[in-house]
Every structure is written in structure tokens, then in C-alpha cells.
Design a protein around this nucleic acid. Structure first.
Length: 841
RNA sequence: GCGAGCGUGGCGGAAUGGUAGACGCACUGGACUUAAAAUCCAGAGUCCGAUAAGGACGUGGGGGUUCAAGUCCCCCCGCUCGUACCA
């Protein structure tokens, strides 16, 4: 009988469904394990990135189940977002219709992969049943003072009359309209993540099972810095300007003051001075992306105002408005010390500002390192830290400065001027101002009768939706038309999965039992924002006494991207991989037979057409082959390259496994291991034991490719084993069954089918227990040890384990090749028992 | 620009500071076949050597620490992710 994946995969998917074996229920008798993969945005169809992510998660879920854990493994849909509105505009449909139809397609595709989800817990975040809870949360935050409104600058498309996301601004123009993007001041809702910055930073140390690189990125994102604020009085004015610096020690090198275009002082100046006004306007209309700001040419506007240097009598510093000073960081104003800061240096050179070195160095300016201070009066001769301390002390004494801690992290702007998101439950009343909607009136649902023909946000142009009565005074009032950032939904969805109750976001019992997520898996692109917002959200919920947990994710693993070679034809048009055929290392177009230009291997993306459709792969090879290749190729945290030959290799392996066991089946029913084992039987069991150890360890370490390699080795040992008698049969049959259990989390359908054929056990393999390491079958007690001369390998000796240093040396000195290179007595002998012998001459 | 990561045969990748290249893919030779595919067996980093023994070189480039460096340190190059309204 031939291996027919489509047949057996459907069969087992149905069985798992019918018996509901992946349903998760609270069971205090078992340790719980919550495995979660980042839920997808329903963009239309699953892609290889999803296949990879969900295969990794499924392996863990099935593995932990086999180890006796009570596993929760849910799936849902991150269903609000911009693409649904774009699709609505392009295809003249509704965002909800488009989204739910995508969900249906993608759910079908996920089902075909044989993933062990508890589908009863599925939800889409765009459903009022989900987002109604967010409205309550937001009101709690609002009442607790964590949510507030403030003015920001947004990208405004004057043609579409709509706010654009950064992504929708291409080279300063709207992506659809092509109109030059303007900046518009708008009020929006913010959450005070900055209040929690210190705790978010400190607790990173306790995230023991997070990758270091993610923790480093979060630390840097929060960006705590110790510095000082200094108040400068403006000459001939009552105004002051407060600056922030991390280097108060360089105060004697200060030669100018720079303030942000959004600084109050800038705005004040702009009111009176048209040139200043133009400059501020010019700065505002620049991109507000961090990359662009940092890379942009530096411009300044000389305000004509000056301040006096606090320690240099009679020295005045000019105040500039500068485009590279961010209002959101520190105080929105700095003193410029060009000798010791790159940006200040560039700025000073451009505007011919004096450059005074105050730290001794042989390097070229600007020098940003440590050193002894010069030209600095009372700071002379001190190093940086000493000078920082003393300068702050002196500033305090003068009453114009103090040490100040600042954070780079900014409050989270959650307002979006969009339709397809969760409505923000606030009402604006002429009499009462902003009024939170009473909880009894929740949820505020999105209207379905909208159209995108009108410009801007359909909630604004909707004829009736925003009109309402004020809950306080009952006068006519209007609703908030902004909706939440979609990070809002993904900041707590993992908690919602623990709960089946439709009337509560989560309950004490279920939340306490299942949370935190034991293993979270997703793309590294979420290393900072999504994960930090989620960590913040837990704290915010704790702050309003909704839950009692700070850290949502105990262990985190991030996966790399799925890549594929790119192809172009002679007209520079991108080609799909299945339009290309390879012959003698040259690529040709399948139809035209023209030569094809093979480009770089890049992340799979629709725009470059270097995509392989998972659906096609599942149809051609089955889900198990796709899963097996995903796991065998690269370690999860690295990028992987999808290759046709790789998938075929996996296909062949599963076929070999299938054929091997089908042939064995004829001679089955050798249940028990023989009491006395032959040498070769012992060896096979030792290999098995070693494989169990290695597979277990590499799954725990998230090195699934090594687990696969190890299983392949065991399979090689199994197929090359010569069966001479019934005892051999028993040992082979025993080993085969263990192999099936080991491979089951990777390729569950074929494992179930072969288990059913081969094992006398009536249970499904999905409920079998993971093999235990049996120390009776340890590997032989002989080991090979390399012998080096001057660190270069010259021989390998095979010796008993734990041989003494003396005996090791003697054995090593019996080697001809060692003696040849030794040529006399060595100066020194380094022996690490069971590891290495090295003669130094 | 800034922050983080990655770089090992023809390819994907293995390797607690201790035998570099496990396990695969592709390739080559052989068996089976009328033939092909599939399957099975064998070989294989590069160069010198005889197809052996053995040796030299070799983990992006340059330098350093060490008895010993893919691994640790410094500098450089290339690529990837993030950069706050894409998700």
C-alpha cells in the first residue's frame, strides 16, 4: 500500500475532531501548559510564515501533552486593521465581509495542517463579543487616570481628506492619491505606559526564558537615562528654557541652546515672527518617522534670544529652533556641546557656532568617550562620572538644575481615525465635555451601514451613528469617532483564550489556572512593540484591579522569516517560483523557455512573487511533509530558505518510514523485549536511548532541526539492522514504536496511521506518553579522544571512559603520528580526561 | 542615523573554548530496470599526494587573548529585523 497523505490526513483530522482530544479543560490533577502562537491577521490566505509558526507551536503542544501536561493550545484572529479598509475601498465591499470571508478560508487551511487547537476557544477580535470588553477596560483606565487625551501631529492626505498611517506615506506623498502629505494637529487618546516604564524595565531581568536579544531591545526601547535638567533664564525676558542633558559635565563646552519646533517657546516665537512661523511649519511637515528625523539634514532657526552661561560670566548662548530636537524626549530642549556630540557638531559646523573641547582626547572631534576634563574651571582634571556628579551638585547649589531620570519610551497613542477598529466609548458634550459612556450602555458597536465613497473616516460621515445624548445632561452630544490601535486587541487576547464565559473577559479561576502563557512563539518583528504593549497591558489591568499578574509570557521564542530565491525575466518582471524551471544550473521560464535571471534569496513577499503557496504544498505532498520540512531545515529562530529539493527530501523520508513499517507489519506482535540481549540488540537500544535523550533535549532547547536529525539517525540504524531471529524482531519492533512516538509531534497524521497499523495498543498515538530515558541502555564505555600536538590534531585514540591522565598520556605516546610531530619531550602536556590530550612543544 | 541579530562545503545546517562540517539536500559512481522514475549500496570541504598513508589550507575580512578559537575580545564589510499610525 502506498503512502497517500490526503487520505490519511483527512481521516485523522476527523478522528481528532470527533473525539475532541485537544479540548482544554481545567484539571487541577495535572500540571498545565499554555502554548500560544501569535494569532494571524486574516489577510486572505495563510503563507509559509504561518505554516512555520504554527508547526513550531503544534510540535510543542503535542510534545507537552505526551509528557503529561494539561495543554491549552488556542487559535484566533487579529481581525481589525488597515488592510480590511483598503480592500473595502478597492473591491467595494465591507471590511467585515472581507475579514470574515478571509477567516473562513484561512481556518480551512489551518485545519488541513492538522494543528492540535482547541477550536472551541476561537474568536475574531473584530466581533463585538470580543471588543466590548476593551471598551470597559478603557473606561477603567480612563477613570484610573491611565488614559488621557493630547494633541499630536498626524499625516494628513489633503485629497483623500484622511489620516494616513506611516506605511501609507511614500516619499512624503499619499500612496493612493499621490498628494503631498501635510501634518495636521489632532487630539488623540494615549495610555500612560511611561508611568510603568521603571517596572517594565526592572522586570525584564526576571524574564528568564526570553531571548537576550529581545530583552536588550526592550531595555533600549524604554531607554532609561540618568541626566540633569538645567533651567536657563532668557536674557531680557521673564521666560526660561529648561533643557535636559545626560552629560551635564560638558556644560563648559556648551555653545548654543536648541529647542524643538513643537516647544512652547518655539510656538510663542512663531506667533510674533513670520520667519520663525515658516520654519516651524517646515519642520512640522517633515516626516515624523524616527529614521527620517535622524537622517534628515539638520536645520536651525536663530531666534535672536540668548541665555547666559551659568558658570561663564558674560558668555551668552544663542537659542535655535532645530528640526532634530524631539519634543517627546526630555524637555524638548538641549544645550549643544559640539565638541562631544555628533549631532551638535554637525549643527555647529553648519551654523558657524564655536566648538570648545572640554574632554582631553587624541581622537578627532566630536569625541564622545570618557576622559579628563579641560577648559572647565572646577571640573578640570575630573573624569566623566566625577564631573557629572560635581556639575549637578553645583547646579543644585545655584538652584537652576537637578538630576533627572528620563525615559525614551513615549506614551502609547491608541487613537486611530479609522472605521475598522474598536470604538472608543467616550461622548463629547458641549456642556459636560468628554463623558465616559456608562457601562450599562456598552458595547458601542460599529455600524454596518457604511460606505467608503465619502472621504475620510466613515464613522465621521455616517449620518446618525455619532449623534447621541449626553449621559450626564441628556443634551445632544457626539460620540468619539476614533477607534483603537489594533495593538489594543493583541495586548490581551492571550488572556481571553483562557475563558469561555461570553459575559466576562476572563474569570479568576481560569485566568489563575492557565496564565501565564508558558510558551509564546512568533515573529521576531514583534520583539518590542507587541510584547511590550502586552506587558504594559497586564500591568494596567492589575492597576485597575482587574487581574493580578504582571508578566503574560513565561517563555518566549522568536522565529525567523521564510525566504525564497527571487526570479526576474528579461523585462525585469518578477516571476513566481513555479514559473521557473532549472536545467543544468540555469533557470528557464516554464512556458517561454527564455532564460530567467535568478536573484537574491529574500523574505517571501507578494510584491517580489518569491512565494510558495502552502495550499499547493499540502495538496502535492501532504501536511506532514510540509511540517517535517519546516522543522528539519533550520533552527526556528533563524531565517529559513524554502527549497523544492528540501521538501522532496522530507517527502522521501516519510515514504521510507511508511514502507519500512508496512514491511515490518507482516511480522509484528513481538511485544516484550528479550531478557538477554545480544551485542547488536544492546547497541540498537543504546541508539534509541540516546535518541530519546537528544530529541527531548533539542525540543526543550528549541533546536527542532537537531531533533529531526537525531530521529533520522535512529531510523538509519533501524533500517540497517539485520534481523536474524525473533529476539531481533522484538527489539526492532520496540524501537520502531518509540520512534513513532518521538516523531508524532512533528508528523502526527502519518504517525497515527502507522501506529494504528503497527502497534497492538488501541490508544491513539496522540495520547501516548513520551518515552522515558532508560539508563540500562547507555552507550558503550569506550570513547574516542583526539590527541593534539601544539593544538593540532595528530591522532585519535580509543580508550575506556574515565581513564587516568597518566594512562591517557601513555596511550597517546604510542601513536606513531604523534611521535613524529613530537620529536622529543614536550614542554607541557595538557590532559582533560574524556576530552583531549595536547602536547605542547 | 540609532538599537538588535546573523555570516560555517555547491546548498540548509551541526559543533558545553577541546576531532570543524553531525543529519539532510544537490552531486558522482554502482546495483535493480528494456529504459526512466522510485528504491538500495558506496563516495565526497578545497588543494598536494597514488584513488593510500599522511600533509597544507579552511567557519565574511583584519588583528588579539589562549596549550587550544566557528565559539571570547577589538576593528571593518555584508545582510536581516525594529525604529512608535503595517500587522
Amino acid at each position: 500500500m502506498k503512502y497517500n497523505p490526503s487520505l490519511i490526513e483527512k481521516k485523522w483530522q476527523k478522528k481528532w475532531d470527533d473525539l475532541n482530544i485537544f479540548k482544554a479543560e481545567i484539571d487541577y490533577k495535572k500540571p498545565k501548559y499554555y502554548v500560544l502562537e501569535m494569532f494571524p491577521y486574516p489577510s486572505g490566505a495563510i503563507h509559509m510564515g504561518h505554516v512555520r509558526n504554527y508547526t513550531l507551536g503544534d510540535l510543542i503542544a503535542r510534545y507537552k501533552k505526551a509528557q503529561g501536561f494539561n495543554v491549552l493550545h488556542p487559535m484566533g484572529w487579529d481581525a481589525f486593521g488597515l488592510p480590511a479598509e483598503n480592500a473595502a475601498i478597492e473591491n467595494n465591499t465591507l471590511p467585515s465581509k472581507w475579514t470574515y470571508s478571509n477567516i473562513e478560508t484561512m481556518k480551512n487551511q489551518l485545519k488541513q495542517m492538522g494543528l492540535s487547537y482547541d477550536w472551541e476557544r476561537e474568536f475574531a477580535t473584530c466581533s463585538p463579543d470580543y471588543y466590548k470588553f476593551e471598551q470597559k477596560m478603557f473606561l477603567d483606565f480612563y477613570k484610573a487616570g491611565i488614559a488621557y487625551k493630547k494633541e499630536t501631529l498626524v499625516n494628513w492626505d489633503p485629497v483623500e481628506q484622511t489620516v494616513l498611517a506611516n506605511e501609507q506615506v511614500v516619499d512624503g506623498r499619499g500612496w493612493r492619491s499621490g498628494a503631498e502629505v501635510e501634518k495636521k494637529k489632532m487630539k488623540g487618546w494615549f495610555l500612560k505606559i511611561s508611568d510603568f516604564a521603571e517596572d517594565l524595565l526592572n522586570e525584564i531581568d526576571n524574564l528568564k526564558e526570553w531571548p537576550d536579544r529581545v530583552k536588550t531591545m526592550q531595555r533600549n526601547w524604554i531607554g532609561k537615562s540618568n541626566g540633569a535638567t538645567i533651567n536657563f533664564s532668557i536674557n531680557n525676558s521673564d521666560d526660561k528654557v529648561e533643557i535636559y542633558t545626560t552629560r551635564p559635565d560638558t556644560i563648559f563646552g556648551a555653545t548654543f541652546i536648541a529647542i524643538s519646533p513643537q516647544h512652547l517657546l518655539s510656538l510663542k516665537i512663531a506667533q510674533k515672527n513670520n520667519q520663525a512661523k515658516d520654519f516651524v511649519k517646515f519642520c512640522e511637515n517633515q516626516s515624523n518617522k524616527e529614521v527620517d528625523i535622524e537622517k534628515a539634514d539638520k536645520f536651525g532657526f536663530e531666534t535672536g534670544l540668548t541665555v547666559t552661561h551659568p558658570f561663564k560670566k558674560g558668555i551668552n548662548l544663542k537659542i535655535y529652533i532645530a528640526n532634530f530636537i524631539l519634543m517627546d524626549y526630555g524637555t524638548g530642549a538641549i544645550f549643544g556641546c559640539p565638541a562631544h556630540d555628533q549631532r551638535d557638531y554637525d549643527f555647529a559646523n553648519k551654523y558657524s557656532i564655536e566648538i570648545i573641547p572640554v574632554i582631553e582626547s587624541k581622537d578627532n572631534l566630536p569625541y564622545t568617550g570618557d576622559g579628563l576634563h579641560i577648559n572647565s574651571d572646577f571640573l578640570n582634571g575630573l573624569n566623566t562620572q566625577e564631573a557629572i556628579n560635581l556639575s549637578i551638585k553645583k547646579l543644585k547649589k545655584l538652584g537652576i538644575g537637578k538630576e533627572t531620570i528620563t525615559y525614551r519610551i513615549r506614551d502609547w497613542g491608541v487613537s486611530r481615525q479609522r472605521y475598522w477598529g474598536c470604538p472608543i466609548p467616550i461622548i463629547f458634550c458641549d456642556n459636560c465635555g468628554e463623558v465616559p459612556i456608562p457601562e450599562a450602555e456598552l458595547p458601542i458597536n460599529l455600524p454596518e451601514d457604511i460606505n467608503f465613497d465619502m472621504k475620510g473616516n466613515p464613522l465621521v460621515s455616517h449620518p446618525t451613528w455619532k449623534n447621541t445624548k449626553c449621559p450626564k445632561c441628556n443634551n445632544n452630544a457626539t460620540r468619539e469617532t476614533d477607534t483603537f490601535d489594533t495593538f489594543f486587541e493583541s495586548s490581551w487576547y492571550f488572556a481571553r483564550f483562557t475563558e469561555l464565559n461570553p459575559s466576562k473577559p476572563f474569570t479568576n479561576e481560569a485566568f489563575k489556572y492557565w496564565m501565564p502563557v508558558d510558551q509564546y512563539i512568533g515573529g521576531v518583528e514583534h520583539a518590542v512593540m507587541h510584547l511590550l504593549y502586552s506587558r504594559f497591558f497586564m500591568r494596567a489591568l492589575k492597576f485597575v484591579k482587574s487581574i493580578d499578574l504582571k508578566e503574560p509570557f513565561n517563555s518566549l521564542q522568536t522565529q525567523g522569516m521564510v525566504c525564497h530565491q527571487t526570479f526576474k525575466d528579461r523585462k525585469e518582471k518578477w516571476l513566481f517560483p513555479n514559473e521557473v524551471i532549472k536545467e543544468n544550473n540555469t533557470f528557464f521560464h516554464v512556458d517561454t523557455k527564455e532564460k530567467v535571471i535568478a536573484g537574491r534569496i529574500e523574505k517571501m513577499s507578494k510584491s517580489k512573487k518569491n512565494v510558495v503557496d502552502p495550499q499547493q504544498i499540502i495538496q502535492n505532498f501532504g501536511a506532514d511533509t510540509a511540517r517535517f520540512f519546516m522543522l528539519s531545515d533550520s533552527p526556528p529562530n533563524r531565517d529559513m530558505e524554502w527549497s523544492d529539493s528540501g521538501i522532496e527530501g522530507s517527502w522521501r523520508f516519510l515514504n521510507r518510514l511508511w514502507n519500512f513499517i508496512n514491511n515490518l507489519e507482516k511480522e509484528k506482535s513481538h511485544k516484550n523485549l528479550p531478557i538477554n540481549l545480544s551485542e547488536s540488540q544492546k547497541n540498537l537500544l543504546a541508539t534509541l536511548n540516546n535518541t530519546v535523550k537528544e530529541v527531548t533535549k533539542s525540543i526543550d532547547d528549541f533546536h527542532f532541526n537537531i531533533a529531526v536529525a537525531s530521529i533520522r539517525s535512529l531510523f538509519n540504524a533501524l533500517t540497517s539492522y539485520e534481523i536474524l531471529n525473533n529476539n531481533d524482531k522484538s527489539v526492532v519492533s520496540y524501537t520502531t514504536k518509540k520512534l513513532l512516538i518521538l516523531i508524532n509531534p512533528m508528523v502526527p497524521h502519518i504517525a497515527e496511521e502507522l501506529w494504528e497499523k503497527f502497534s497492538e495498543n488501541k490508544n491513539m498515538i496522540s495520547v501516548e506518553r513520551w518515552p522515558v530515558i532508560n539508563t540500562n541502555y547507555e552507550e558503550t564505555n569506550k570513547i574516542k579522544i583526539p590527541v593534539q600536538v601544539n593544538g593540532r590534531m595528530r591522532a585519535i585514540i580509543e580508550v575506556q571512559t574515565n581513564l587516568s591522565e597518566d594512562d591517557l598520556e601513555k596511550t597517546a605516546l604510542n601513536e606513531k603520528n604523534v611521535l613524529k610531530f613530537l620529536n622529543g619531550t614536550p614542554k607541557k602536556v595538557i590532559i582533560i580526561p574524556n576530552r583531549i590530550v595536547n602536547f605542547v612543544i
